[in-house]
């Protein structure tokens, strides 16, 4: 893996090298896929209730919020950044969207608000980071605190209810039997996969993560790319907040607590390197599913909540360890 980073560092925009990097990422993806399959088989052996259609649909729906956020965080982490503000942004979007989802506004208005608020917060993060004013960790840590405060201020610290039936469709409805949050999760996944794999911006994102200086030298507008990446993550966190709000039929300033860490965990489990330059959307989705399967399986077995936390922590560490070992041996 480190050799791989070296390659990119020496020659950031060499297509061949990038391709080599990507093919290695594919291996990484399958490694983590095996972990997911193994966990599924384990849960299936341990509890007969795991492998039912309803339960599998539940798992994907339950993970869709974190999954959408994680898909937005993945490009950020590929550029060697981090976003700690997504959980608080979910809360801020939640209360604002809820206040516009009451009464007679057409459905488009709350959706637009989610997009506007999400992108605006992302743009602030991105601008501060791209201009080099603050490191991503600090900039988004500040935003995490401020956005939570803004959510409290906007809502008086109280939940906002009375949401319209049409708005509830986003989180509670189904299309052809598939829950809408799962559809949003899938669409966001496909769109982001295309951006990362089929566009110039995607190529730039990997290049910046590989070696930012080299990327600048190669003529990439690093600032612009970084701003876009953070704005995009804001957009997705906004969509996640909207979906969650609709799902629970209530805008809550307390929602989204620790979501940023779950999203980062999903991303890292999925093989994205915190050192930048490496990561795939497929991996992140599988990472999110691993967390979902573990949560769900432990609930099904009636494991006590104290043990659940310990087991979850151990599985996160073990999954990444197994994956990195597999990489090394190949």
């Amino acid at each position: 893996m480190s050799a791989n980073i070296e390659n990119i560092k020496q020659n950031p925009l060499n297509d061949k090298q990038l391709l080599k990097g990507r093919s290695k990422n594919v291996m990484q993806k399958y490694g983590i896929l095996l972990v997911l399959l193994f966990l599924c088989v384990l849960m299936w052996i341990l509890t007969p209730h795991f492998l039912t259609v309803t339960n599998l649909v539940n798992i994907v729906r339950q993970m869709s919020t974190i999954g959408i956020i994680a898909i937005g965080v993945t490009p950020i982490i590929i550029t060697k950044g981090i976003d700690l503000s997504s959980g608080s942004l979910v809360a801020l979007v939640s209360v604002i969207v809820a206040s516009f989802a009451q009464g007679n506004y057409p459905l488009l208005i709350p959706i637009l608000m989610a997009v506007v608020v999400g992108v605006a917060v992302g743009l602030i993060n991105g601008t501060i980071i791209a201009k080099g004013l603050l490191a991503p960790f600090i900039a988004t840590l500040g935003m995490m605190t401020a956005a939570r405060g803004a959510a409290m201020l906007y809502s008086d610290g109280r939940p906002i209810g009375g949401l319209s039936e049409s708005f509830k469709f986003i989180g509670q409805g189904t299309i052809l039997g598939i829950p809408v949050p799962v559809i949003i999760f899938a669409l966001v996944g496909v769109a982001t996969w295309i951006i990362l794999n089929k566009t110039k911006i995607g190529k730039y994102i990997y290049a910046i993560g590989g070696n930012e200086h080299a990327a600048v030298t190669a003529g990439i507008n690093v600032k612009k790319v970084l701003i876009l990446v953070y704005a995009y993550a804001g957009l997705l966190a906004g969509l996640a907040g909207m979906t969650l709000t609709s799902r629970i039929a209530s805008g809550q300033p307390q929602s989204g607590l620790m979501f940023e860490l779950d999203a980062i965990a999903a991303t890292v489990i999925g093989g994205t390197s915190l050192f930048g330059g490496i990561g795939t959307i497929g991996g992140t989705i599988i990472g999110a599913l691993i967390i979902g399967v573990v949560n769900n399986g432990l609930d099904l077995m009636g494991v006590s909540s104290y043990w659940q936390q310990i087991v979850k922590g151990a599985i996160i560490v073990a999954a990444v360890y197994v994956d990195s070992r597999k990489n090394r041996t190949k």
Binding site: T47, P48, H49, F50, T52, T54, N55, N58, Q62, T65, L244, R247, I248, S250, Q252, Q254, S255, L257, N295, N296, D299, L300, G302, S304, S305
Partner: peptide
């Protein structure tokens, strides 16, 4: 018995999972 952390979202999840336990 399980925790849903005083939260509605977690309450939905836990109940969905409980319903699957049979």
């Amino acid at each position: 018995q399980g925790t849903a952390k005083f939260s509605r979202a977690d309450g939905i999840k836990l109940m969905e999972n409980w319903l699957q336990t049979g």
